[in-house]
């Protein structure tokens, strides 16, 4: 995938994610609705490909105003990645040369890789994660399980231990997926399943939309790095 295609695909997928978020907020408190109504219009224009540089700049200002409105991210990690994507797209359009655009998009891809690897690392160093106790606690008393029935997963400690290690290994080994295109496709499919599981168990729907929007940067980076691996 060439850089221009990756940028365009990121714009489209991010816009879809922003439209999904914005629609949810249109029925929120009155003082949050104008921000998201504007975001909805800007995202629709970005999908249409109207003046993407200006629209990305406007989305960046809109994101800052939303940050100020909520005094931080509204929806944790998914908002952080949305912000990173908006900022990266905004910066890409401001860069004077293709080389600098590559640096910006490379930074974005690197952060997506870190989002998995650092999460895996911060878990594997914790004894409670290695034993499966931490995941049991998530189901037992965290605010995240979407229903009382979901809390019942706490009664399956061996399954949760296996799930803990599956998540840790998936996250830690993710950077190796950059070695080849088939490996990356397999890794992205596995991580998509992981995000979907998080949605089913914990209701994190926005994470799925936003992380998928970041995948074109990984596909581009892998293609860019492949000649180096092959010497």
């Amino acid at each position: 995938m060439i850089l221009d295609d990756a940028i365009r695909l990121t714009e489209i997928l991010l816009s879809v994610a922003l439209i999904q978020q914005s629609l949810e907020h249109l029925f929120g408190l009155p003082d949050e609705r104008p921000h998201y109504a504007l975001r909805l219009i800007l995202a629709a224009l970005l999908i249409a490909g109207v003046q993407p540089a200006w629209i990305c700049a406007a989305l960046f200002v809109n994101a800052l105003l939303i940050l100020r409105r909520f005094q931080g991210p509204y929806n944790g990690g998914s908002d952080l990645l949305s912000l990173l994507l908006i900022t990266a797209l905004c910066a890409v359009h401001l860069m004077p040369t293709a080389r600098w655009q590559e640096y910006v998009f490379g930074y974005l891809a690197l952060q997506v890789i870190f989002s998995y690897f650092k999460s895996g690392w911060s878990k594997v160093v914790q004894a409670d994660w290695r034993s499966g106790r931490a995941l049991r606690d998530v189901f037992l008393f965290s605010a995240y399980p979407v229903s009382a029935a979901t809390r019942g997963w706490t009664g399956w400690p061996r399954l949760l231990c296996a799930m803990s290690w599956a998540v840790i290994l998936l996250e830690l080994l993710f950077p190796l997926a950059l070695i080849s295109q088939p490996a990356l496709v397999a890794a992205l499919a596995a991580m998509l399943l992981f995000h979907l599981a998080n949605f089913v168990l914990f209701g994190f729907n926005r994470f799925v939309w936003v992380w998928v929007a970041a995948y074109p940067s990984l596909i581009w980076l892998q293609a860019r790095l492949e000649p180096f691996w092959q010497g």
Binding site: L64, G72, P73, G77, L80, L83, S115, K118, S119, S122
Partner: peptide, 14 residues
């Protein structure tokens, strides 16, 4: 407030 998005810690559920 934007800084944690540009330089995230990415430590979910640690």
């Amino acid at each position: 407030l934007l800084m944690p998005a540009l330089f995230p810690s990415w430590r979910f559920f640690d």
